[in-house]
Design a protein around this nucleic acid. Structure first.
Lengths: 214, 214
DNA sequence: TTGACTTTCAAACAGATGTTTTAAATAGTT
DNA sequence: AACTATTTAAAACATCTGTTTGAAAGTCAA
């Protein structure tokens, strides 16, 4: 029985730098392609450090997820800066904008988006927890907004599908990045371009839902 | 100087079974995770066969792409069964339906969709050719339809973004498969469910574009 | 300082994987 | 049949990669 190394906050330097280095490498290369030697080198740690601090490579991956999830959630909370009693349309606009800003964020927050993209193609056990704790609540929040816009006559399935239509437009540019970069090289995803994109998705979706409601 | 093995059509049994086996394995595991030993075992061939017939693993991957691309294009040509002089709305409906049917097709055709998904996350040199020869023409065709629906006042960028909005909804359910399966377990992507989905995307997008045009 | 512990480190281990080698088998041709 | 070129096969090679080992270094309380 050995004490969990992580419980000692003073000697956490190696542990922390491993997480930071691993975040960058996992995001760029994926879980499988990333090597612990690469990560350790980038963290300035010994090869055995991963096994000592995280048991194995998968343990390090879980730690990175936890950290990256924590960062993303703190910077972009669920409410997206829209007040509780705002109009549904304004909430939708805020939701789309916040969604895009988050997945196109640079730096450590971006890991989160990239890791999610990879989970879609090569799911790990981490995905199930992510869906329950993050994606499901997000979708419920969005569905509430969509329901208000569609009106009382809308069925549950119409709400669900319309919410998916909104999300799909947001996810698309990030998830299909390599193709988009070939297809529309002028798109650099600067802050202003993201805002223009958000505006289009908002207007497109709003018009769609208003049309469907009739 | 040795003759290229592939040029002999009679002794192509091993070569062909390698491509077929590799298609399944690459689609399921991805280029990196797939092992030549796995592929050869599944093809009933010797380990050295890949290097003999395709030079190396990457050569086999290119061959699979070529084959899978060929199959997909033959089964689902660009025109999607809509006549030249059909109404733009009907062309849109046919386009969406055909798009969904293709990426959710089973068997060898499905390799194509899965390989594309993987190229998004881990691009290989194959992607550039794919964009030029397949995706770009598809987008131009769709943009023509969208332009007609949006009307003469629409700008190029509006057309482009609206076309993207249509495509994004089609791609979404396939590309985010693992999340969707957790989120909406009832979705099995049967023929009838795909048709319902196509119907929603069509109505949603059409209403959006009609609204934007005003 | 001593002693118990946590952490680091270099080295080695064990398994997997793409590729090469070398020889045998198999057509195809004259 | 005999010769040549092509294809297959088993084994070995070289490298990479996650993990373990065992000793050294460091940390901290008594």
């Amino acid at each position: 029985m050995s004490k969990t190394p992580s419980s000692d906050p003073i000697h956490a330097r190696t542990r922390e730098s491993l997480i930071l280095a691993a975040g960058a490498v996992f995001a760029e290369q994926g879980f499988r392609a990333a090597t612990v030697r690469d990560i350790c080198k980038s963290a300035g740690a010994n090869v055995a450090a991963v096994n000592y601090h995280f048991r194995d490579k998968a343990g390090l991956y879980r730690a990175v997820w936890q950290y990256s999830h924590h960062c993303a959630l703190r910077k972009y909370p669920l409410q997206h800066g829209a007040s509780e009693d705002a109009k549904p349309q304004d909430k939708l606009r805020a939701y789309i904008s916040s969604f895009l800003l988050r997945i196109f964020d640079k730096g450590e927050i971006a890991w989160f988006g990239k890791l999610i993209s990879r989970e879609m193609i090569e799911p790990t056990p981490v995905l199930e927890a992510l869906v329950k704790e993050e994606i499901q609540p997000q979708l419920i929040y969005l569905s509430g907004i969509v329901r208000c816009i569609l009106g009382p006559k809308a069925t549950d399935i119409q709400v669900q599908r319309s919410a998916m239509s909104v999300v799909s437009q947001c996810v698309f540019y990030h998830h299909c990045g390599p193709v988009i970069r070939h297809l529309l090289p002028h798109l650099t995803f600067s802050k202003s371009q993201i805002e223009e994109l958000a505006d289009h998705i908002y207007k497109f979706s709003l018009a769609a839902m208003k049309g469907l409601g009739k």
